[in-house]
Computed example of a mutant assay.
Amino acid sequence: MAVMDNIQAASLIEAWIKYYEMDEPKAWEPDEYPSVKDACKSMRYAIQILRGKPSGTAAQLKEAIVNLDEFPEEHSMDEPEEWEKENAAFVKQALEAIRYTVDVLKKQK
Results as ranks from 00 to 15, higher is better:
residue 48 Q to M: 04
residue 18 K to C: 14
residue 80 P to N: 15
residue 13 I to H: 05
residue 96 E to W: 09
residue 53 K to A: 15
residue 48 Q to H: 10
residue 94 A to V: 09
residue 106 K to D: 00
residue 25 P to E: 15
residue 48 Q to G: 05
residue 51 R to Q: 03
residue 75 H to M: 05
residue 37 K to G: 07
residue 103 D to Q: 09
residue 87 N to P: 05
residue 98 I to Y: 13
residue 8 Q to S: 04
residue 102 V to I: 06
residue 75 H to W: 07
residue 26 K to H: 08
residue 75 H to K: 04
residue 74 E to F: 06
residue 56 G to T: 10
residue 5 D to P: 11
residue 69 D to P: 03
residue 82 E to C: 13
residue 19 Y to D: 06
residue 33 Y to F: 13
residue 3 V to L: 05
residue 53 K to N: 15
residue 16 W to A: 07
residue 32 E to D: 15
residue 72 P to W: 08
residue 80 P to I: 15
residue 19 Y to T: 03
residue 46 A to M: 00
residue 84 E to Q: 15
residue 31 D to A: 03
residue 22 M to K: 01
residue 102 V to G: 00
residue 54 P to R: 06
residue 90 F to T: 13
residue 58 A to I: 10
residue 41 K to D: 12
residue 105 L to Q: 06
residue 47 I to P: 01
residue 67 N to K: 12
residue 102 V to E: 02
residue 54 P to H: 14
residue 86 E to I: 10
residue 2 A to T: 06
residue 78 D to W: 04
residue 15 A to C: 05
residue 87 N to E: 12
residue 19 Y to I: 01
residue 92 K to M: 12
residue 104 V to C: 04
residue 17 I to Y: 03
residue 93 Q to T: 02
residue 108 Q to F: 02
residue 26 K to T: 07
residue 107 K to Q: 15
residue 50 L to F: 07
residue 82 E to A: 14
residue 26 K to F: 04
residue 62 K to A: 14
residue 66 V to L: 14
residue 99 R to W: 05
residue 71 F to M: 01
residue 4 M to E: 09
residue 68 L to G: 01
residue 80 P to T: 13
residue 60 Q to H: 02
residue 6 N to S: 09
residue 17 I to W: 06
residue 67 N to C: 10
residue 59 A to F: 05
residue 32 E to M: 04
residue 85 K to L: 14
residue 77 M to G: 15
residue 38 D to A: 03
residue 24 E to W: 09
residue 108 Q to G: 09
residue 35 S to Q: 02
residue 76 S to R: 12
residue 25 P to G: 09
residue 4 M to W: 09
residue 101 T to A: 05
